[in-house]
Nucleic acid binder design. Structure first.
Lengths: 201, 201
DNA sequence: ACACTATTGTTGACAATGACAACATGCTGT
DNA sequence: ACAGCATGTTGTCATTGTCAACAATAGTGT
């Protein structure tokens, strides 16, 4: 009898499903994400994903959590560049955020789609909040250096974070109004820091 | 023989499909949007939508275009409040933008999802650009009054528009960090206008 | 007034999907 | 060695989107 191409127990199917799902997501979008197609790619039966994810939505949620964890790691590394002034680190963190989004556009969109639904998993909220904890710290350091206006650093960070996120959401294929997003990011950081008014009121 | 409950030709099926689709979208999300379900609700056969929308995706694209047209109308009305200074009009336009998004969260998300796909329909791009044409005009008036820094009003508007859009995308059920988005919007407009730096550099 | 065409309905079929149930294999703990 | 659990399997069902062929009627041209 022909030996099976793989032992009966895959051994790492959950991780492989997540990896294959991310690739399929970026290639074809969430609307064409198919559990059966993923199973065929991995050489398992159509019902085996159900042993790791109770529903298709559970797999999608797991992708979102994974995404926020990655984003947090990427932004955290960029934000901790020692020996640079806070503005340089701020711009680096901003570039890291936008860079992640440009590199994983479908995953990025899915991450924020996942947080909109009722019954959001607590791990998702934890991962999201971790991802957004870096910029407030940098602004707080700027306040301590007398360079940033007074106020709750989280509230100030929200303005900048929202502007960056908005840039990503409003861009098309990495460009906004014909300009590469990567070129727009430092300018946006500058605009938000100095303000659009001609004076300080 | 029993008279049919409706003439053979519906007469307004396309508009009714869009209306029903929008309601279903807000109620259940895009992933549970079903052509057959919409057909049942409207009392027509399962294949009749195909006479108006070649594919399900065409219906979704039509929803996005409709959304941008509505958004443009809402923001345009708010932006044209005569007799008020530019900052008040700016805040009104910002409130209108965020208000629309809070009132139609699923449609709003779908609008920006639609623009991300390759082969975006030209009407979608036209409607999107119309929606984003109002804030640059207000900033230009602010520049003429000497209140806004020099520069391309579209580029400056991008920073503010991105911040607003980012707020929406990052909010959860109309709140951000426990605060109602409507309360955050004027603060964000203020932050972007005056800047986060303690001085003008 | 009528014939023809186009529009927009219909029924039926097919392939694909997600989810579920029942069964199969093998790993782990006692 | 065996029971229990984890994680595979096959098979089934209901639903979906899409397509083809046909049906009804609205609109148009003569």
């Amino acid at each position: 009898m022909k030996p099976p191409s793989r032992p009966y127990h895959h051994g790492n199917l959950r991780q492989e499903l997540l990896r294959a799902a991310e690739a399929a997501l970026e290639a074809r979008g969430v609307q064409d994400l198919s559990l059966r197609e993923l199973s065929r790619e991995l050489g398992v039966s159509h019902a085996s994903p159900q042993r790791h994810f109770a529903t298709k939505q559970d797999l999608i949620d797991a992708l979102a959590i994974m995404g926020f964890e990655r984003l947090s790691s990427v932004v955290g590394k960029a934000a901790e560049a020692r020996g640079q002034d806070f503005k340089a680190r701020l711009t680096k963190a901003a570039n890291a955020y936008v860079g992640f989004a440009l590199k994983h556009p479908a995953l990025f969109a899915l991450m924020f789609e996942a947080k909109r639904r009722p019954g959001m998993r607590p791990e998702l909220r934890t991962a999201l909040m971790a991802a957004f904890s870096h910029v407030p710290k940098i602004l707080q350091e700027g306040q301590e250096a007398g360079k940033i206006v007074a106020g709750d650093p989280h509230s100030l960070a929200l303005t900048l974070g929202a502007a960056l996120h908005g840039l990503v959401a409003m861009s098309i294929e990495g460009k906004i109004r014909g300009t590469s997003l990567k070129a727009v990011v430092p300018k946006t950081v500058q605009h938000v820091l100095t303000g659009l008014n001609t004076n300080k009121t």
